[in-house]
Each structure stands twice: as C-alpha cells, then as structure tokens.
Simulated scan of single mutants.
Amino acid sequence: MRQIPVDTSAASIMAAQPPQPKVANRQTGEIALDRETGAKLMTVDVMFVLDGNAEIMTVVIPESGVPADLAMGTPVALTGLVARPWENEFNGQKRHGISFRAVAVTSLADAGAKAA
C-alpha cells in the first residue's frame, strides 16, 4: 500500500476529540487490530492548522501510542504521520479518500509547562 509521509513541522495540531477505539465492525462492535502487530487501534480526531486554514482529520494510532489522559484542546505532536490513499466499491458505488496513520500522538501541554 502506498504511504505518503506528512510533514507537520509548520502546522499547529491539537486534539479535537478524546481518543476512541477504532471499530472494525459496527454491527458486532469488534475493535480493529493492527494487521502486523495485533495491537488495538485507536482513532484521534485532531485539528490541523496550517497557513490560517483548519481541518479536522481522524488519525489511526496503535493504543500504545496514545496517552490515556489526552484531552480535547491539548496541543499535540504526531510521530510518523503518513497519508494512505484508499478506494473501494460498496453496493456498486466507488468510494475513495485518504486515511491518516501515525505511530504515536504526544501531548505538548506538558512540554510547554516545563519550559515556562
């Protein structure tokens, strides 16, 4: 699968929603697992601000890379962020988009408090 590294160095990023388990099957409630490691996957909605434009994007992160106390509005850094184009067909309708995946999300709130 193609992966495109995302440079976040010029952007401001903050948690828009608390982390949630990524659901693999909405009917059964089955939680998604990483295909390679078997790790439970989480989704984190973040606000990505660059050049005065803000976008909300959902990032999939292994549970081990998500701090338990990550709160809405917390400034964060995304480690190893990549974009993955996807396409599928469901009920005869073609759909496509871009999904985002990261190795970890780290709160920058603690770093700012320590620097002050």
Rank of each mutant, 00 (worst) to 15 (best):
A104M: 00
F100I: 04
G52N: 08
A116K: 15
D45R: 14
V66S: 03
A68D: 14
R26P: 14
F48H: 13
T79M: 11
E63D: 06
G73D: 00
A71T: 11
M14F: 10
M1S: 12
E30W: 13
N25A: 12
D34I: 04
R26H: 14
I98Y: 00
P67D: 01
G112C: 08
G112S: 12
P85D: 02
A113N: 15
G112V: 02
Q20D: 13
P67V: 05
N88P: 06
V60L: 08
T74V: 02
M14C: 14
V44F: 01
A39P: 07
N53K: 11
E36V: 12
T74Q: 05
M57I: 12
E89N: 14
T43I: 11
A11T: 04
I61K: 03
L78C: 08
M1P: 15
G29A: 02
M1G: 15
V49Q: 11
P21W: 11
A111Y: 15
P5L: 08
A115F: 09
D45G: 06
A71W: 07
P21D: 14
P18F: 11
A24W: 06
S107Y: 04
N88A: 09
G73Y: 03
V66I: 01
S64H: 10
V105T: 07
M57T: 04
P75I: 02
M47I: 12
L108G: 06
V6S: 01
V6A: 03
K22Q: 14
T74N: 02
R101V: 09
T106I: 11
G97S: 12
V23C: 00
